[in-house]
Nucleic acid binder design. Structure first.
Lengths: 161, 161
DNA sequence: TATATTTAGATATTTAATGCCAAAAATACT
DNA sequence: AGTATTTTTGGCATTAAATATCTAAATATA
């Protein structure tokens, strides 16, 4: 019988745990146990197992970017001249060094290779990042920017049904 | 004298707390205190203050989507026929009801009004979502899809300097 | 049906979180 | 510069939670 990790036989309890921990990542085990209708011992065992298996990859505090003075979120679509491993590896290494880059995805369907999510104080900071950092990376031939006017909603991965 | 909330006089300790909690959202207060070089009492007080002020909006467990069998992440750029509040409100209400939609942003710079981030099992599920759910929402005139080939990196908002 | 295996729940123990108070540090004031 | 005021730290006692261990129940297997 294969382990829970690959076969993924998650029951109602596991799914509820995942849903709740995605909404309230720092809920106490006792509260969690209460909410899913299980006693603390087996509840904790399940949480540990989910962490152990890698299904729960970690926990993150959600920080209000606006209150940190980071008022401008932008999505940058980046085109590369050549699609060689070296190009990609170098780009990704350089991106890693920029704390303003919150996310980097390789995408298809746009006329772009990467989508970057960046977070900066204002237009000046954006301008500086774009001109002096992003476009200076070797192989970058084009950048198209979208600005995020509003975050309508955001949530975790669906774990029920 | 303005409160910490708006004036944002975060010192080294607060910033370290924010950085660490974004990486390890469930770290114990004692460990956290150790790492930032403060005793548990003032450390906990600071964390509570950051939560209270709303700078820390909450905590989230990070769930491995692939292991949940959700193998396909797509970015959908949605165009609307009219840019009226009613259109937007209705669209956002409908999107809210779709658990596959992880994020919804209003953007500028693309020829689209929204960027949706969706997570589904496979192409069939994507196709179904697109045809039977997204395009059926009133006012949606166009959808352009990008598929995420790889998530290169992801991290929280920068809190240092 | 009997047996093996897994999972839940109870309890005791360890560890962490919380609240309170005195001391130290930083700040403001004269 | 010296003193007073405010703020923040650190220690300690208390409360609560996490963890480990064991027994009982439920489930699956032969």
């Amino acid at each position: 019988m294969p382990s829970k990790v690959e076969s993924l036989d998650l029951d109602r309890y596991d799914r509820q745990i995942l849903e709740l921990l995605q909404q309230h990542g720092r809920i106490s085990n006792q509260e969690l146990a209460d909410r899913i209708g299980l006693s603390p011992s087996p509840c904790l065992r399940r949480v540990k197992a989910l962490e152990e298996s890698g299904l729960i990859q970690g926990y993150r505090a959600l920080v209000d970017a606006k209150r940190m003075g980071l008022n401008l979120m932008a999505l940058l679509h980046i085109s590369m001249d050549r699609h060689t491993p070296e190009r990609f590896e170098n780009f990704e290494r350089e991106i890693e060094r920029l704390p303003q880059v919150l996310e980097c995805l390789i995408i298809t369907g746009q006329d772009a290779d990467y989508q970057l999510r960046v977070l900066v104080e204002d237009m000046d900071a954006y301008h500086d990042l774009l001109l002096h950092k992003i476009t200076r990376i070797e192989g970058v031939t084009g950048v198209h920017s979208s600005f995020v006017l509003r975050k309508v909603m955001e949530r975790g991965v669906p774990c029920m049904g």
